[in-house]
């Protein structure tokens, strides 16, 4: 077998093993379920409120938006934090010492994080169906749209996550990314429409993928009438594909360069130095 093919296969297998490992780990399971439960409880209490200007349930509007947010989180921040943590614990150095190991590692991460993101989506969507009214899941295009937005979202966010993860050396600095992301969520109309925001805030929100992922999910799962309360009064499918596509291209161009640079600089003594710092942090 060709070494690259072998590495791709090994990477797929790596993803499956990591999935099994993560779904049999109590801590990880807690990390998946807890935010889902919080989100579902939030939406449960929002189900009585309505989207301004309509009689539509605000909870039912929030659900698809939150699915979009979850994708951005799962794709970007989870990959970034795994890269940072696994650089510190030596996984990446081990992988670097293995022929074609980096290729296998990345494929494994893509398999792991895409699957976790998809399963998390189902985990939020399925229970919500029982207490939220107005989601159009019976429409044939709904699931197809959901899948399309999810795939586009992963392609747009995973490479950016790889870039962020490669640039951050110290796990402590992950907070520097988390905080602005939280702010961006508030801007991106996940929990409440942003029609009332000043134009420049709306403009900022529309630069980043979170807004568009939320919008894309809403367009897939909500009745078409609700497009009227979006910015521009439409689902703006073209713009959604355009912005997410632009992020995907940017990420796919940058990620290999940044990843390669990060991998090249990785060595035992750099790890030892990082460990020293970690010990000093604790001590």
């Amino acid at each position: 077998m060709n070494p690259t093919t072998a590495a791709v296969r090994a990477g797929l297998r790596r993803g499956l093993i990591e999935l099994r490992n993560t779904f049999t780990n109590g801590q990880d399971l807690w990390n998946y379920f807890f935010p889902t439960v919080v989100l579902l409880v939030t939406m449960f209490f929002m189900r009585g409120s309505t989207v301004p200007g309509t009689t539509f349930s605000l909870g039912a509007r929030t659900l698809p938006s939150a699915l979009g947010m979850g994708l951005a989180f799962g794709g970007m921040l989870m990959l970034a934090s795994q890269l940072v943590v696994e650089r510190e614990d030596g996984t990446l150095l081990r992988v670097k010492a293995t022929p074609n190991g980096m290729l296998g590692y990345l494929i494994g991460k893509i398999v792991l994080l895409s699957t976790v993101a998809m399963l998390s989506m189902l985990l939020q969507l399925l229970p919500a169906i029982f207490f939220l009214d107005g989601l159009e899941l019976a429409r044939p295009g709904a699931w197809l749209g959901l899948l399309a937005v999810a795939l586009l979202g992963l392609v747009a966010t995973l490479p950016i996550g790889a870039v962020i993860g490669s640039l951050i050396e110290n796990p402590r600095n992950l907070g520097l990314v988390m905080l602005p992301t939280m702010g961006l969520i508030a801007l991106s109309g996940i929990f409440y429409p942003i029609n009332g925001y000043p134009g420049w805030l709306q403009a900022i929100a529309q630069v980043f993928p979170i807004y568009w992922l939320g919008l894309g999910m809403r367009s897939a799962l909500l009745p078409d009438d609700l497009a009227a309360v979006e910015l521009g009064g439409s689902w703006r499918h073209l713009e959604t594909v355009g912005v997410l596509g632009a992020w995907a291209v940017l990420g796919l161009v940058l990620a290999p360069v940044v990843l390669r640079r990060m991998a090249r600089r990785e060595s035992g003594s750099r790890m030892a130095a990082r460990r020293e710092r970690a010990i000093q942090r604790v001590g």
């Binding site: 070494p3 993560t22 614990d89 030596g90 081990r94 010492a97 022929p99 035992g268």
Partner: peptide, 16 residues
């Protein structure tokens, strides 16, 4: 790379 073996000092990767 495939012809080399590397054992570095105390790693704690792949814990799961």
């Amino acid at each position: 790379r495939a012809r080399l073996g590397v054992v570095l000092q105390s790693w704690r990767d792949h814990g799961k």
